[in-house]
Computed example of a mutant assay.
Amino acid sequence: MPWDDEEARQAVLRSEEMLAGLENLPDSTAAALAEGAVGAVVELYGQCLARVIGHAAHDTGLLRRLADDDLVGHLFLVHDLHPDPVAQRAAAALEAARPRLERAGILDAELIAVEEGVARVRLSRRTGCGCSSSEPPETLVHDALVGRAPEIERVEVETAPTETPQALIAVDTLFRAVSPSCGRSG
């Protein structure tokens, strides 16, 4: 039975941890051999995946579904085969992160540019919202962008506070005593 998206994410994390652990093996010859074997398999699978994409290229709906699948999309990224340009994936990542950013007090997140591995993002904060998040909005933005566009090496975030809109009726006027002559004819 195929993995669901969460199982796929966990498998990707486990794989990355194990690959990172190869460099810590005490036997450097065995570590180099293991890295070489993994690299050869990854390269072989990348070539196979490129052929699959070539066969599916005429069916844009199929290619879109494959690219949007978390696990398959990750493989496209690993092999530099993703059909969407980096800026498009970065914009989609910000859009997907909106609910978490809103909980962190961010009204808007705008992708300004992606150039030479640097993404520039403008955040508009809600002033005085008292919102709390376990992660700062800048970290949420960074993680979202790098997750969908690993080519992004650095994220530059500028934050501008957004003024709280003025109430249509000032609150203090609601509690003023009504003049006895108001509304009476006389």
Rank of each mutant, 00 (worst) to 15 (best):
V114E: 04
E43P: 01
L145Y: 01
D27W: 01
I53M: 09
R65E: 09
V72M: 09
A90N: 13
G36P: 04
G21W: 10
E116N: 15
Q47A: 12
L25I: 05
H74S: 13
L77H: 15
S124R: 06
A37W: 05
A34E: 06
E135Q: 09
D143C: 01
L123E: 09
E23T: 11
V52W: 06
L62S: 10
D108M: 12
L140F: 09
D68F: 11
H55G: 08
R51E: 15
C131S: 02
E110I: 09
C129T: 11
N24G: 12
E35D: 09
L107Q: 12
V121I: 03
A87I: 05
A20G: 15
L19I: 14
R98I: 08
A67K: 03
A113R: 14
A109Q: 06
E110F: 15
V118N: 03
I53R: 15
L111M: 00
V121Q: 03
A50P: 02
D108A: 12
A32Q: 07
L77E: 02
I112E: 14
Q88W: 11
E35T: 11
G147S: 09
P26H: 00
L62D: 10
A50N: 06
R126K: 06
A30F: 01
R148Q: 06
S28P: 13
S134Y: 04
V86W: 12
R120G: 02
A57V: 12
A90I: 01
G61H: 08
S134M: 06
L111E: 01
A90M: 04
R120M: 07
G117C: 03
A97V: 11
Q47H: 12
G21C: 12
E116H: 12
G128F: 03
R148P: 05
A32R: 15
R103M: 08
E35L: 15
C129W: 04
Q47P: 02
G39R: 10
L25K: 02
A92V: 06
E43D: 08
R51N: 13
A57H: 09
